[in-house]
Design a binder for these strands. Structure first.
Lengths: 145, 145
DNA sequence: TATTGTTATACTCTATAACTATA
DNA sequence: TATAGTTATAGAGTATAACAATA
C-alpha cells in the first residue's frame, strides 16, 4: 500500500553509494579492531569458503597477482593463513586459513554492529525481497556461488 | 507470489559484500578511464554537491585530515578542483569543483555501465522498494543529506 | 587553549615489468 | 612457449605526531 515515491536511477545510485559506503566503513572498522586492513580482512573472508591459489585469490579480490604476495606475507606472519604446496602442480601455492584466521574473520563479521543492526530491522519477506533485488542489480555469480 | 526463499542475515551480508565489490569495481574502472584513483573520484563526487572545507571533506570521506592534503593537491594540479580562502575563518580553505572537475565526475558516473544496466532492470515499483529497504538498513543522513 | 590545514614519517595497497621455477 | 608466484620499483592511500597560523 505504500505509494511509490518515484525513485529515479540517479537517486538509487546515490543511495547505493551511501549504503555500500556505510557497509564498507563498518567492515573496515571491524577489521581495524583486529589490527587488519580491509584488504587483509577481505582476503580472510574469501578464504573462509576454502583454500585458494594465489592467482585465484588475486582474481577474486580484483587486484594484480603481485599484490597478493605482500598481503599473504603479512597474514602468514600473523599466523592467520599459511601457504601449502599444491600436489598436482608444483608451481601453485594454496593459501589456507588457520584456525586463528577463522576465528579472526568470524570475529570481524560478528562485530559489524551497524550493518547487522540495520539488517535486523527487516522481516523474512523483506530480507528475501532485498536479496532478490540486489541479486538482480549486481547479477553476480554465473557460477553456483 | 514468489515464495520467500528464507534468506538469513548471513546470506544478506554476503550479498552486500559481493554487491559492494561489483559497485566499487565499476566505479574504480570508470575513474581509471579518467586516470583518477577511487579516492580522487570519490572526492569529486562529494564536491559535486557543493564546496567543502578540507576538514569536512576528510570527515565525509572517513579518512584523516592529513590525507586530504595530498588528494586535493593532485586534483588541483590536474585543474579539477581549486582551494579558496574562506571569508569568515582565515584558517579554513574551501575546496571547489572547477567546470572541468564537474565534467569529469559526470563522465565517470555516466560510464558506470554495469551498475546502470543492473538498475535499468528494475521497474518503478522495484526501485522504490529497493530504495526504501536500503534506507531502512543503512539509516543514513540524520542531516538533510 | 582549541582548531585548521600542512608537513614529516612509516606502512600498506596498487600496477608494471622482469625474474624463477615449473608446465 | 606459457603459466604461477615472486621481486623490484614507483606512485598513491592511510594514520600518527608535530607544527604554524588563526580563532
Amino acid at each position: 500500500m505504500p505509494g511509490h515515491p518515484r525513485v529515479d536511477t540517479g537517486q538509487l545510485m546515490e543511495l547505493l553509494s551511501v549504503s555500500l559506503g556505510a557497509y564498507y566503513g563498518d567492515f573496515t572498522a571491524a577489521a581495524a579492531d583486529q589490527r587488519l586492513t580491509a584488504s587483509q580482512a577481505k582476503t580472510l573472508s574469501v578464504l573462509r569458503r576454502g583454500p585458494a591459489a594465489m592467482r585465484a585469490l588475486a582474481g577474486t579480490l580484483a587486484c594484480d597477482a603481485s599484490n597478493m604476495t605482500g598481503i599473504v606475507d603479512r597474514l602468514e606472519k600473523r599466523g592467520l593463513v599459511r601457504r601449502e604446496a599444491s600436489p598436482g602442480d608444483r608451481r601453485v601455492k594454496n593459501v589456507v586459513l588457520t584456525p586463528e584466521g577463522e576465528r579472526t574473520i568470524d570475529a570481524i563479521r560478528a562485530s559489524m554492529h551497524a550493518t547487522t543492526a540495520g539488517l535486523a530491522t527487516l522481516d523474512a519477506e523483506e530480507r528475501a525481497t532485498l536479496h532478490a533485488l540486489l541479486s538482480r542489480v549486481f547479477a553476480p555469480t554465473p557460477e553456483g556461488d
